[in-house]
């Protein structure tokens, strides 16, 4: 067992992990954060996307032992990245609801984390940038048009002009 200290959604945590455990295993099983989903478990589908030191990564490919001293943001912590009212959702989350971008929902946590990360870096991305930023997130209900529409709407609300 290895003791790993890192930050999850702004809270310091200390967990014991096995060398071969992934960050996704630890988030879901040790920390009870069930928002990040396991889809393919090999970095293809993006359902487990989280921010690691601010950058989107597939948590299924990150060894938990690697995140010592790092800061992790999961879908559960996305709302507090936006300075809204207490308890309010992130504008990207609201836009997904308003547009009806969610079908079965399994890909949505990863989709939203990727979209939030994109808009943090580029508040008004062009269409190509938007599609490229979400290319690592698969939706097998194939609801991509509504998803892209939701991200465009969120960009608008957040002050960009996509």
């Amino acid at each position: 067992m290895i003791l790993v200290s890192f930050e999850v959604n702004g809270t310091a945590v200390r967990v014991e992990v096995e060398p071969q455990d992934t960050l996704l295993d630890v988030l879901r099983q040790s920390l009870g954060l069930l928002g990040s989903k396991e889809g393919c478990a090999e970095g293809e589908c993006g359902a487990c996307t989280v921010l690691l030191d601010g950058l989107p990564v597939t948590a299924c490919l990150v060894l938990a032992a690697k995140v010592e001293g790092c800061s992790v943001t999961t879908i559960e912590g996305v709302a507090s990245m936006w300075k809204g009212e207490e308890g309010a959702l992130h504008p990207v989350q609201e836009a997904f609801i308003d547009v009806g971008a969610v079908q079965c929902g399994y890909c949505i946590p990863g989709m939203i984390v990727s979209a939030v990360s994109l808009l943090e870096r580029d508040p008004s991305p062009d269409e190509k940038t938007l599609r490229q930023a979400l290319a690592g997130n698969f939706c097998r209900c194939t609801g991509y048009n509504k998803i892209f529409e939701a991200v465009r709407r969120a960009a608008n609300r957040m002050g960009g002009d996509l």
Binding site: G43, G46, T49, L52, L55, P56, V57, T58, L61, V62, S114, S117, Q132, A133, A135, G136, N137
Partner: peptide
């Protein structure tokens, strides 16, 4: 290469 998530790792 890969996707944004893979390129970050």
């Amino acid at each position: 290469v890969g996707s944004v998530q893979i390129r970050n790792l």
